[in-house]
Design a protein around this nucleic acid. Structure first.
Lengths: 199, 199
DNA sequence: GTTAGCATGTAAGGAGTTACATGATTTT
DNA sequence: AAAATCATGTAACTCCTTACATGCTAAC
């Protein structure tokens, strides 16, 4: 009954892990930093934050007016339990982690995810996309000439997008593999995947 | 209270407009042909179909066993009202029509959409994406160096995807404009946008 | 002075999923 | 004979949005 759900909770825990924040600020970060939750409503966010407090994952401190005379912000800060829960959620990452909506959020927190989990998610995501690719190509072959040009154009664009993401994932997976060979100790050496954007 | 909602209803009306079908078949087409509704559950589809019947947009005929001894399929066929409703929904296409989930479905039915509406949707969609592009580029400039490499890689990939879709839309809009000049009578001449997939 | 942005919340409802229930048919 | 696929449906539940309610501050 206290199951304040999956992705949003993870995303909020992740951002609060970086630094304490109030709800309004959090909402902006969710869209600008994580990309997901483009226009999350306060009707979702505030109850979620209250839920974290209820579960003892965050504290709520009415920051009493720093400077201006604004309505006093409510700053949320993760407890030790909250930080632990975040790590636990990151480590779990089952098949749900390679969904369209979830993957982006998981990926955004790769900086604090261990190498095995990173690899598992990347490979899982790629498998998911390749499966989709097979479906697209299959139905493409089956329905050839039965579709009008607009539908075909749409399917081609979709196909290209998925293929692009697979290539992107391949590059990321390569980088992870190289890192594994050259650098076994986590937390040292060069960080991140580098710029794999250009083709 | 009878508001059996937006996109799904439109998609179902569109597919039933092409040919009468039963629910199970319809579900496959929704994912393979339209791309949207990748794994729509029957818990959504069947109530929606019942809703169409309730509204007098479709008839329900228990097709009595054609060949095999299968559980008799229930074939849904649009009424005149249903066909009219489909055209009406296509023509409306307000700002909701350029949402991520909605746009694909609208576009898939461009073959039965008039030229003005097509252009309105394409331009609206492009504006929506360019707005998103501005946000991404803005926050990119603002938060430069404050994000780890994974987050940056994610944002770059997102940026590239949006830019790609804008280029795709630009090509489609060009094609529409040319068609407008050379061919004023709708329903005659060459159909569709051609293959604008390659770069 | 009024529009835009900051800041927090609640209640009602929409759109969909999951889990359950049933049973025939085709393929392995 | 088992497993996959065809075929239809319902009830409960989840996650999220919309619409409402409030009030302050900065910019134009």
């Amino acid at each position: 009954m206290a199951k304040r759900s999956g992705v949003l909770e993870l995303a909020v825990l992740g951002l609060l892990h970086e630094s304490p924040m109030h709800g309004y600020e959090l909402r902006k970060r969710l869209s600008s930093q994580l990309g997901a939750f483009r226009a999350l409503s306060y009707g979702s966010l505030y109850p979620c934050l209250k839920g974290l407090v209820r579960q003892g994952l965050s504290t709520e401190s009415t920051d009493p007016d720093e400077g201006g005379t604004r309505r006093s912000k409510i700053v949320y800060q993760l407890t030790a339990d909250g930080k632990e829960r975040f790590q636990q959620l990151l480590a779990e990452s089952g098949p749900a982690a390679w969904d369209d909506e979830t993957f982006g959020v998981r990926f955004a927190f790769f900086g604090r995810t261990d190498a095995d989990t990173r690899m598992r998610i990347l490979v899982g995501r790629r498998a998911r996309l390749e499966e989709r690719l097979d479906n697209l190509k299959g139905s493409f072959a089956r329905t050839r000439e039965r579709l009008d040009d607009y539908t075909t154009a749409l399917q081609n664009h979709g196909l290209d997008s998925v293929e692009r993401e697979v290539r992107w994932l391949n590059e990321l997976i390569d980088v992870e593999r190289n890192r594994k060979q050259t650098n076994t100790t986590p937390g040292s050496g060069a960080q991140g995947p580098g710029d794999t954007t250009k083709e």
